[in-house]
C-alpha cells in the first residue's frame, strides 16, 4: 500500500581510480618546485590555469607550459560557512573565504582559499599572493591559500 514502502540502505562503496591526466600531472609536478604552471595557446596567446590540453577559444591542442605569477588580483569571493563532505552540508569551524584570483600572466581566474588576519579586510580588487606549505610534495594541498600581498 502507498505509505508503507520500506527503504533499504545499500552499503556498497564504489571505488574509482581517476587519472589526473597529462596537463594536470605537469601542474602538480610544478607544485613540487612551488611553481604555478599555466598552459599557453600559441595561436591566441591565452594562458589557462589550471592547464588543460585544448584551447577553449581556438580549439587547438595545446601543450606549452608557462609559469605564471605567484601574485594576483582577487576578482570575486564568497564567505563560506560550511563544507560539503560526502554530500552533507556541515558547518565549518570558522568561516573561510573562497576567491577567484587573476594571477599575473594568466588569462583565466583560479579558485583558492584566501586568508587575512582580519576577514573583514578582504575586498575584491585587492592584491594577493600564494602561500605554500613548507615542503611541497606535488599535491593540491601544497598551495595552501592566498593572503594579502
Amino acid at each position: 500500500m502507498p505509505g508503507d514502502i520500506v527503504r533499504a540502505s545499500v552499503p556498497i562503496t564504489f571505488t574509482y581510480k581517476n587519472r589526473v591526466g597529462h596537463a594536470l600531472e605537469q601542474y602538480l609536478n610544478g607544485f613540487k618546485e612551488k611553481k604555478i604552471l599555466g598552459v599557453k595557446c600559441p595561436a591566441c596567446k591565452r594562458v589557462y590555469v589550471p592547464p588543460r590540453t585544448v584551447c577553449s577559444s581556438c580549439h587547438k591542442p595545446i601543450d606549452t607550459m608557462v609559469e605564471v605569477g605567484q601574485t594576483g588580483v582577487l576578482k570575486h569571493f564568497t564567505i563560506a560557512h560550511v563544507n560539503i563532505v560526502n554530500g552533507e552540508i556541515l558547518d565549518a569551524q570558522q568561516p573561510y573565504i573562497i576567491g577567484l584570483i587573476k594571477l599575473t600572466g594568466a588569462s583565466s581566474l583560479v579558485s583558492a582559499i584566501v586568508k587575512a588576519p582580519s576577514q573583514g579586510t578582504i575586498k575584491t580588487g585587492m592584491k594577493v599572493k600564494a602561500v605554500w606549505k613548507e615542503t611541497a610534495q606535488g599535491d593540491y594541498g601544497d598551495l595552501t591559500y592566498f593572503e594579502p600581498a
Binding site: 574509482y16 581517476n18 587519472r19 589526473v20 591526466g21 594536470l24 589550471p50 570575486h76 569571493f77 564568497t78 563560506a80 560550511v82 563544507n83 560539503i84 552540508i89 573562497i98 577567484l100 579558485s111 583558492a112 582559499i113 593540491y140
Partner: peptide, 18 residues
C-alpha cells in the same frame, strides 16, 4: 575528479555564491 573534487572548494553551491 582530477582538479575540483580533490580540492573541494568549488561545488554547485560555491559557484552560485561566487
Amino acid at each position: 575528479p582530477a582538479y575540483e573534487r580533490p580540492r573541494g572548494i568549488i561545488n554547485f553551491y560555491s559557484t552560485a555564491a561566487l
